[in-house]
Design a protein around this nucleic acid. Structure first.
Lengths: 237, 237
DNA sequence: CCCCTAAACCTGTAATATAGGTTTTGGGAA
DNA sequence: TTCCCAAAACCTATATTACAGGTTTAGGGG
């Protein structure tokens, strides 16, 4: 978990190319969408075969530093949560991370995103957040719809927090959340429990609309208390 | 930030191979260190050229789902923070993330890791954490030593929290922290300010040793208040 | 049963070829 | 002049072959 990456591994052509290309982006101050030199050019400049360049570009594309496409030069890309999501999923698959730990991370971060959202959300964002909460209540007998609104609800808050780091991290948890969500849902045996959860979503949304960070965080924490209890009941944690 | 990855992109051979290999790891329940099929075998199984398989493996290696080495079959790898660190660094380079946002994420998470560390640390971990705080005080006229102890101090706490998600995220911030750290250091004009920071580190360490999560979090928050102020003074935020 | 070595296996890099996708260029029409 | 279009130039995705090393395995000798 703690190893520093070895810059410019001398005998690793691909690693060296990755470093060189990342450096190129930094030093030339390239922006998302800007084009990198063609593979053939990089190959000549860095004195390695196109094979090496391609593998280096694929590495960078996997991390979403660059974007590749047939016929077009490699372009600088914007971060998104896919890559980090894959990593988290892998951590769960190999039991390096468990569900409880992800939940604790979510709780920690979402306590903050809800407060920031209350402070920073636009009117439109507040409306969208509340709309998801209401849609959840309206469709509460259709789990396949509820889950989508639930996830969208939390992610809207993350975005409204105006901190892309939070949005990135919480977005990466999405896939794992999606897999455990039905378990929590089923463990809420009766509609009363489910409606209680809707009430909490409503409360969070209202606090964000009202611009009350303390209330938003409090409601969010309460929400996680209840959700966590559901997962414990289900024996998942 | 929100796009879901499209599973099995039909016309993207490499993407399909990545998905297939990741699925292989999951379905065969492979553990870190376990070997994947040789490239030639994957090539035959998935009906694509070795070129495609290699690029797929490089993608997975970039995310640290697998590890590659000359002469040896690809092996399943453990997560580490290098890959995520590269992503974060890129986010900063392209101005998708700013330093203040990383600091807010750190503060949010470290408030929690310090509390968890107080609850879960072993005796040895508590000693190591305190040792870093003391080394910082002892070497406080040697910035190049102080920074290393500072970073190690925070990371030890993250590890002692027993949540690898936190350790992963905070580890990924390391490189960025390392780049901004000297700025904060210089803005602490006199030794008094610097010693004050040492006192806070000491306080955090003692709270963790004492097993007092509330005090640990409080001291950590105070620490971030001061650090943030230093960065503001320096005009970085 | 253990150790060592040769063979078998396997990856890293390079070079070449080609199908198709994208961008640029330059000319002709409006 | 400006706009549009088609041809040309450019470029990537994939496949194939080759070979230099590095690693693992199998088998024989002690």
């Amino acid at each position: 978990m703690l190893s520093r990456r070895s810059d410019t591994p001398s005998s690793d052509f691909v690693g060296a190319a990755v470093t060189a290309i990342a450096q190129l982006i930094r030093e030339q101050d390239l922006r998302p969408g800007d084009r990198l030199p063609a593979e053939a050019v990089l190959s000549k400049d860095l004195q390695v075969s196109r094979t090496v360049i391609r593998e280096a570009l694929r590495s960078l594309a996997a991390l979403r530093l660059v974007e590749l496409g047939a016929g077009r030069r490699p372009t600088v890309a914007e971060l998104n949560d896919d890559a980090f999501g894959l990593m988290i999923e892998h951590g769960v698959v190999i039991d390096q991370i468990d569900i409880q730990q992800i939940y604790d991370a979510r709780r920690t971060i979402e306590a903050r995103t809800s407060a920031l959202a209350a402070l920073r959300r636009t009117e439109a964002e507040a409306k969208a957040i509340i709309a998801h909460a209401e849609a959840m209540a309206a469709d509460f007998h259709l789990p396949e719809k509820v889950i989508e609104h639930d996830i969208a609800f939390h992610l809207s808050i993350a975005r409204a927090s105006r901190n892309p780091v939070f949005a990135l991290i919480l977005g990466a948890f999405q896939n794992v959340t999606r897999q455990t969500w039905p378990i929590g849902w089923r463990s809420r045996a009766n509609d009363g429990d489910r409606q209680a959860m809707n009430a909490l979503h409503h409360e969070i949304g209202q606090a964000i609309l009202a611009g009350d960070p303390g209330a938003a965080t409090a409601a969010m924490n309460q929400h996680f208390d209840v959700s966590l209890k559901a997962l414990v009941t289900a024996g998942l944690i």
